[in-house]
Structures are given as structure tokens and as C-alpha cells.
Amino acid sequence: MQYNWNWGVLLQEPYLGWLISGVGWTIAVASAAWVIAFTLGSVVGVARTLPNRWARGVATAYVELLRNVPLLVQLFIWYFVVPELLPDDWGRWVKRDLPLPEYTTAVIGLGFYTASRVAEQVRSGIESISRGQSMAGYASGLTTLQLYRYVLLPVAFRVIVPPLTSEFLTIFKNSSLALTIGVLELTAQSRQITEYTFQGFEAFTAATVMYVVITLTVTAGMSLVERRARIPGFIAKGG
């Protein structure tokens, strides 16, 4: 194998700057998408357990649709197709005036996709609570809203911290798909450095190390959350 090692390339400008900005975009895409994923995913997940048949149907359709189409296809649809299908005025606005179009599209696409996965975790969290709790809630005169607010959700969200952690890690990894619509996040930057310098080993190693650091940081942070959220007497389920 012939290869000219040059680790110094990683510390040269502009390549060091590229890597740092890549990490920044990865974090920016993943965390903004997580806000959508967690909010929408909680709503959809709750809707899948409601007594109302229509709410359940819509939520189930959402989850099945988004889980069975590859994320890459979904991103392309958000980026290339949706602006064309919107009413003319909106479409024109999206194409002309949308701030940071690639970033925004990536966040929306990744957020909506991950929401379908979060929804499944929320649903299974709610379903893991014994039916007796719901019955007791209704018997003591709670409305459905109160039942979720005071009985089901406080337990469900604490039970699903471990699987949500792995979804949160997945969103960082999946944010690399944003490069297909032109967001220069970490993976894209490492490839760009490879193309400019032919130092693929160094560039991809740098990206790999950063992803491992992100994973370790998130895992450490979430294990704190997990410890605080643990319910005495419940066996923690692995994610």
C-alpha cells in the first residue's frame, strides 16, 4: 500500500476550519431536527393510543408512511417536490425567500422522519403501563386529557428515556444525509478535504473521531438524565 501520511493537514487552514464548521452544522441540524422529532413524535405517539379511532388511524398512517420510505427519498421529496406542489405563492416564497434553504429542508425532513420513530417509542411507553392505571384514572373521574397529563405521560416519558437516547444518537448519524442536498456537515467536509488533499485517511479519521466523541458525550449526558428519571421499582429497559 502506497500512501503519504500527513496528519498535519488536519491542522492547516482552511481544512481545520472546514472540520470545525462541519461539526457545527452536524450539531445544528441534529438538535433542531430533534426539537421537531420530539414534539411531533410525542403528539403522534399519544394519538396512536387514544380511544378515538380517527386520531389513531391518522397517526398510524403517518408512522407507517414515514418508516417505510428511505430517509434519502424523503429528503429529496422535501427539497425537490414539495415546493412544486405547494400553492403558487407559497412555492415561490419557499424557492426565493426561505432562509438557509438546504439547512431548513434537512431539519424538516430529518425531524418529520425521526418523529415517526419517536412516536413508536412513546406509544410503547404508554402501552407498557398497566390498563389498571387508566381504569383507575377514569373511575376516579379524570377526563382523557387529565388521565394523560397526570397518570400516563409522567410514567411513560420516564420509562422511555433509554430508547429515546438511542433515537437521539441516531439523529446525529442520520444528519449526515443532509449532505445529499448540500449541507456541508461533518461527513461532507471530511470528503471535501479528501478531494482537495487526497489525505482520505486523515480526513475520515478526524470525522470518525468526532462522531465517536459526539456519541460518548450524548451517552454520558443521557445517562445522567436516565438516573434522575428512573422510577424506583421499574426495571430499566435497554434501548
Partner: peptide, 24 residues
């Protein structure tokens, strides 16, 4: 744990770069 902390795209890039280099 190593592979589970890596995005698949990065793994694909790695091997597109590595395999030809290793095989020559």
C-alpha cells in the same frame, strides 16, 4: 460500539477510499 457510533454514509466513504488503496 464503534460501528454503531458511525453514520453509514461515512462508512461508505471510508471503504470507497480504502478498498482500492488496500488492493492496489
Amino acid at each position: 460500539n464503534f460501528f454503531r457510533s458511525m453514520p453509514l454514509i461515512l462508512v461508505i466513504f471510508w471503504f470507497f477510499f480504502l478498498v482500492p488503496l488496500l488492493i492496489g
